[in-house]
Nucleic acid binder design. Structure first.
Length: 720
DNA sequence: ATAAAGTGACTTTTT
DNA sequence: GTCACTTTAT
């Protein structure tokens, strides 16, 4: 095997490992994609496994495409029949094939995040709930979490009154989706897991087929995904997973890196292989990354090393505000490019929140420097794009109520709230969806619906019904682009959009861009087009074309690498994000996020923070990120060399100045400690924090319950 | 039924 | 400071 010679011993071990369960713990830049692709090539090319019997799962389409390409390079045509895709796309395929066993039809549509919120809003309204108290976003989050835990509405645990309400919304939400013949992202996984769990015959069919299962980014799997994999591997038990708990950054989406532990429990004979050699970064960058991540508790320490040498020190820089930060980095990039140190495409700028990209764009624009921004939402979230997609979706699946509501009066055709309410009520009585009523009115001009509805309503609805039915009957004879052209022409969408303003022109251009995307589906179905646009991720929109700097969130940066990386907004409140402050697990994830960012850099790393930042349009002063304090001085260029490096003193001028008057306080109490208080007796520390140079401790006392005390005043005694 | 004006919520990350 | 949603006026 020639190809094996290019691998290090650990990589070789992973690629050629035998059957059974195999867990590869792969540090950043350790060549895990390479191991995965070579493993597949090894299975097919060397062991003679038929591609039909191999399943490889990734999280993004981009990762899937990349693997497909690389396997193609190794195997050529011999990879045909391989199942390779994201969890969602693979589930999507299974669900269309097996819909007969499930409460929806094969031509279901996928509701995106926006659609999902609309449904929740509608339900909240239908149930006469106060949407200030029961905010759709929050409710949706609870529903999504439940689905990730494999809980259907009936299983939804109720402990509080709010749970009770959420449960009712969840029930109705789910009914509404099914009535629309629609699934949300979570459903795609949930229904597949349900199918494989409840139907032994179906499970066995798939489990027998997939002799080998390979999973990328295993640390990002949630409970449903884990269950799914377990079902699929239930016959052959050959499951090869690759992951890195330190790069787990999707907990908020239900991901649970403890699946790694679960894996070792469920497959006691599993082999564990560690990949620690890094082929991406300089040792200085790796040391910086390790200094940050080592502060996280309960992790398997990994010693990342490289043969690349130390390289340059990292650059740490304080800027006055976000604007100056953006200007600094654009200037730095321009300077390096002019000096021919780097090409424009070598640079990446990473940030915690999408909102931070705006000021960067302005700076690049002002400098006349081209850039690219990673983010699908930008395009697919646009009103005009969503409208056109809604038309297509409605034609594909007339029961899609969200799409119907979106387009029924866009452009205006005299169907207002009143008419819609009438239609809805009538549809409910007929046990049909509103879309089906409208479609039938178009299909059969003399249908009884026209009689049953008030005259004015019937006339306007029939008009729209004629359009819908004509598209619906022609859809199978047209390409996705052909259908789109037909619709755009029939509704005169261009005239509607182009109102003479620059914005109107832009909107039409976006529609034309969507048309171009549709044109790539010349030989594929409308179904494929709709599914693909529903499942694109921000990462998927990233192409390596155009030699220009890349702007992206830290989340989107996972799996990528760049010679020069700027991580901006390293301020407390931004990174770590303020919304994580209360939750220790979330704080650990913030740290991992920074770790992911740092380890994207090959040669040079810039860490930038601002003294002031804009918040809700107001300027306020900001603290440097606490994580900066963990980075040893000797890794940083230009920083003063001091013994007992105390970044707090260096980075926070106010503390530096004040340090003589106010003694700094060290945290003495930690959660779990047992303490005694003279008056309240024995108790256990729940939480402790330093605030205004005082340690504030929350203690649960056996006799008096929860109390909050100031450590310096309370004279607590620590007990063993 | 629609357009204009006013209100308030919001910003974490995304398949 | 921005967007989406609601109220108000035509």
């Amino acid at each position: 095997m020639d190809m094996l010679r290019e691998l290090n011993p650990q990589q070789q071990q992973a690629v050629t490992a035998g059957t059974g369960a195999i867990l590869v713990l792969a540090g950043p830049g350790s060549g895990k994609t390479r191991v995965l692709t070579q493993r597949i090539a090894y299975l097919i090319g060397y062991l003679g496994v038929r591609p039909y019997h191999v399943l490889a799962v990734t999280f993004t389409n981009k990762a899937a495409r990349e693997m497909d390409e690389r396997i193609g390079n190794l195997l050529g045509e011999r990879n045909r029949g391989l199942t390779l895709g994201t969890f969602h796309s693979i589930c999507g395929r299974i669900l269309r094939r097996e819909a007969q066993y499930l409460p929806f039809d094969p031509n279901y549509v996928i509701f995106d995040a926006d659609d999902q919120i609309r449904v929740v809003k509608q339900v909240v309204k239908d149930l006469n709930l106060n949407d200030k108290l029961y905010r759709p976003h929050g409710i949706h989050g609870s529903i999504s979490r439940a689905k990730n835990e494999l809980l259907f509405p009936d299983d939804f645990p109720v402990q509080t009154y709010r749970d009770e309400v959420v449960k009712r919304v969840y029930e109705r939400y789910q009914k509404m989706l099914l009535a629309s013949n629609a699934l949300d992202f979570d459903d795609m996984l949930l229904w597949t897991a349900y199918l494989l769990g409840q139907m032994p015959a179906v499970r066995e069919r798939y489990a027998r087929r997939y002799e080998h299962i390979l999973v990328d980014e295993f640390q990002d799997t949630n409970m449903v995904q884990y269950t799914l994999l377990k079902h699929l591997a239930s016959f052959h038990q050959n499951i090869f997973v690759v992951g890195d708990a330190d790069q787990s950054i999707y907990r908020w989406r239900g991901a649970d890196y403890r699946n790694v532990l679960r894996f070792e429990e469920d497959y006691p004979d599993s082999q564990v292989i560690l990949l620690e050699q890094n082929y991406r970064s300089t040792q200085t960058i790796l040391d910086t990354a390790m200094a940050v991540i080592d502060q996280n508790p309960k992790r398997t320490p990994k010693k990342l090393f490289t043969e690349r040498g130390d390289g340059r020190k990292i650059t740490l820089r304080e800027l006055y505000d976000d604007r100056e930060m953006a200007a600094f980095l654009v200037g730095q990039i321009a300077k390096d490019v002019a000096a021919q140190k780097n090409e424009p495409g070598d640079f990446a700028v990473m940030y915690r929140t999408n909102a931070q990209s705006r000021i960067l764009e302005e700076a690049f624009l002002a400098a006349g420097f081209p850039y690219k921004l990673v983010g699908a939402q930008r395009f697919y979230g646009r009103r005009e794009v969503k409208d056109v997609i809604a038309y297509l979706r409605l034609v594909y699946n007339p029961r899609d109520e969200i799409s119907l509501m979106r387009v029924i009066n866009t452009p205006r055709r005299g169907i207002g709230d009143k008419s819609i309410l009438t239609l809805r009520t009538y549809a409910g009585q007929q046990n049909l969806s509103p879309g089906e009523i409208v479609l039938q009115m178009g299909l059969y001009p003399d249908s009884e619906h026209g009689e049953a509805l008030p005259n004015r309503v019937a006339t306007s609805l029939a008009g729209f019904g004629r359009l819908l039915s004509s598209w619906h009957t022609q859809k199978d004879d047209l390409t996705p682009m052909g259908l789109m052209d037909l619709i755009l022409g029939d509704i005169d969408y261009r005239t509607y959009l182009e109102d003479g303003t620059e914005e109107g022109k832009e909107r039409w251009e976006n529609v034309m861009e969507l048309r171009r995307l549709a044109s790539e589906y010349e030989n594929r179905s409308l179904e494929a087009f709709l599914e693909n646009i529903a499942l694109v991720s921000d990462q998927d929109t990233l192409d390596d074309t155009g030699n220009v700097p890349t702007l992206l969130t830290l989340h989107a940066a996972k799996g990528l690498e760049f010679p020069v990386v700027f991580i901006i907004g390293l301020n407390d409140g931004t990174l770590p994000h303020i919304r994580s402050f209360e939750d220790p697990e979330a704080m650990h994830e913030e740290r991992r996020l920074l770790y992911v960012g740092i380890t994207r850099a090959e040669d040079q790393l810039y860490l930038l923070y601002a003294l002031n930042r804009f918040n809700y349009g107001y300027m306020e002063s900001a603290d440097p990120s606490r994580y900066l304090e963990d980075i040893p001085l000797e890794l940083v260029s230009g920083a003063p060399a001091r013994q007992n490096s105390n970044y707090g003193a260096i980075f926070r001028p106010e503390r530096w100045d004040a340090s003589e008057e106010i003694e700094s306080v060290e945290q003495q109490y930690h959660p779990g400690m047992n303490v005694n208080h003279a008056a309240w007796g024995d108790g256990m520390v729940l939480n402790s924090k330093i605030e205004d140079h005082e340690e504030i401790v929350d203690i649960f006392f056996e006799d008096v319950g929860l109390k909050r005390v100031v450590a310096s005043l309370a004279r607590l005694e620590i007990k063993p």
